[in-house]
């Protein structure tokens, strides 16, 4: 890897009432890779994501995006270069699937014919039937909603894709199908992505690099095999054992 990482978190700390704090976190998100943040609830992984997209500001430390420090003043322009998918999809209920996906392109005044062809591209990519585009979120299934949410996040061809437990609320079959599609999409687009999950199998399947967090600190990062074979602490082993797959039983 010669190129600088797309995103760098350097000594990031954030403490506040009512949400998980993070302490002195350093993370690099490499171009074209899928980085997975994993850890128990309240370990601070969502906080990190929300710091990167500017929903929160760090108490100390620096976040660099594409080599430049993140400034509140131009945060909206950075946001246009980042796609963001949350667990419930975050689709606006008063807009159809189509308008949800096209919202930002229209807001930025992108050319109509460009956005229309981009939309059909995305439908194909995310395996979302075009004839459902005029449905409202409430008229779609959970899996369909997440596909639309993904299309919305990818609409502006973002350099970075942030996914906060995107598959957390789905049933196992739909979830498996979407995992497979996500992996394909990331590969096809050579997409830089940061994904949060608490499912180790999902992390291993989708991630090039796994970052395990606990109580606001990074415990260990690397491949699943590294975590399993050379655990940095007792916690790593405990966490991995807690997620035994059926095969182990």
């Amino acid at each position: 890897m010669t190129a600088d990482p797309l995103v760098q978190l350097i000594g990031i700390s954030k403490t506040f009432a009512g949400a998980a704090a993070v302490h002195e976190v350093d993370i690099s998100i490499e171009h074209g890779k899928t980085t997975v943040l994993i850890g128990p609830s309240g370990c601070g992984k969502s906080t990190l994501l929300r710091l990167i997209i500017g929903l929160l500001e760090p108490d100390s430390g620096e976040i660099r995006f594409d080599g430049a420090p993140l400034h509140t003043g131009e945060i909206d322009r950075i946001r246009h270069r980042i796609g963001y998918v949350i667990q419930e999809g975050g689709l606006f209920p008063h807009l159809t699937a189509r308008r949800n996906v096209l919202l930002m392109a229209r807001h930025l005044g992108r050319a109509e014919n460009e956005t229309v062809s981009r939309l059909s591209e995305l439908c194909a990519l995310a395996r979302f039937p075009e004839n459902l585009l005029d449905r409202y979120p409430l008229e779609l299934s959970g899996g369909q909603r997440q596909r639309v949410s993904l299309m919305r996040a990818l609409m502006l061809s973002p350099e970075l894709l942030l996914l906060d437990e995107p598959l957390g609320a789905l049933d196992p079959l739909v979830r498996a199908a979407l995992q497979k599609d996500l992996k394909e999409i990331f590969a096809r687009l050579n997409q830089t992505a940061l994904l949060i999950t608490h499912d180790l199998a999902e992390a291993a399947y989708l991630g090039n690099k796994i970052i395990l967090m606990n109580e606001g600190r990074i415990v260990q990062q690397g491949l699943l095999t590294e975590l399993r074979e050379k655990p940095a602490s007792e916690f790593v082993t405990t966490f991995i054992n807690a997620q035994r797959s059926l095969a182990v039983l």
Binding site: I53, G54, R79, I82, I86, G90, F92, L103, H107
Partner: peptide, 20 residues
């Protein structure tokens, strides 16, 4: 989630208010 999605998309405050 909806509130933060609107912000994270990069809509400006006026657009967030009127459109979302």
């Amino acid at each position: 989630g909806l509130r933060e999605s609107a912000i994270a998309l990069g809509l400006n405050p006026a657009a967030r208010l009127w459109q979302i």
